[in-house]
Amino acid sequence: MLATKQQQADNKMMAISTTDLSLWYGTFQALFDIKLDIKQGIITSMIGPSGCGKSTFLRTMNRINERLDYVRISGKVDVMGQNIFAPEVEILQVRKQVGMVFQRPNPLPISIRDNILFGHNIHSAGKTGKSEEGEIVESALQQVLLWDKVKDRLDHKATALSLEEQQKLCIARLLPVKPSVLLMDEPCSALDPKGTEAVEELLWDLRGKYTILIVTHNMAQARRASEECIFMLMGKVIEHRETGEMFLTPQHQETADYIEGRYG
């Protein structure tokens, strides 16, 4: 009894906590009994060779995978202590609370301002006043360090920005609805080294306010830009530890091999 209470308290500290999470695409099993606890407010990275299930795991966290009707999921996923597969859960709320950033920046083909306000507008009843809108836009863009660059052209099309700016905008547009978790699926792989550096800097800036889970193919990036690291292989979690430790003294042979570039 006491133990379960203790466990619950522990779970509350976790942003994401999964138990026996398995996922099938049709007959292909992509995730095997994933048990993971991802701490609140820090940056956790996920590494592993292509097809190991990193992105699938990410896409399960905001339930976007279920759009495909051949996807089957078993197990339990708690986000901020709440089971997201519980019957009373509204999918739209899950997606609002758990924001997603994609590999390829995908700003909407509307103005910079409207991109930022999009999430806010779809989740609010009625109209928002002009001054409040202004504050929302400024605060979101300030948080992603983009305000000074774009404040004079908020009415320009977002698709005309540089890739780095687009990606920052894609992060910024999640913030007005106050998400608790930000999922990032290789957010820098379309960016040049300078853009990558800028986005990594931004991650450290957002750390603490949001729980960030970032999938990356770039091991140097995992090392630079995360506090904990998860190594996945063939749909299973092999290792999950503090990033520095994992890269210095991996506990598993597979992890060591991957980190040293023997496969991947």
């Binding site: 739209l92 997606r95 997603m100 994609f102 995908n106 909407l108 779809i122 989740h123 999640l174 609805v177």
Partner: peptide, 25 residues
């Protein structure tokens, strides 16, 4: 498709996505 995915991932309903992004384009 990327535009729709962006909307859905922010918790937009299909109709919101159609009305605000797909139809205008």
């Amino acid at each position: 498709m990327a535009f729709r995915e962006a909307c859905w991932n922010m918790g937009a309903t299909r109709w919101q996505t159609i009305r605000r992004i797909v139809l205008p384009n």
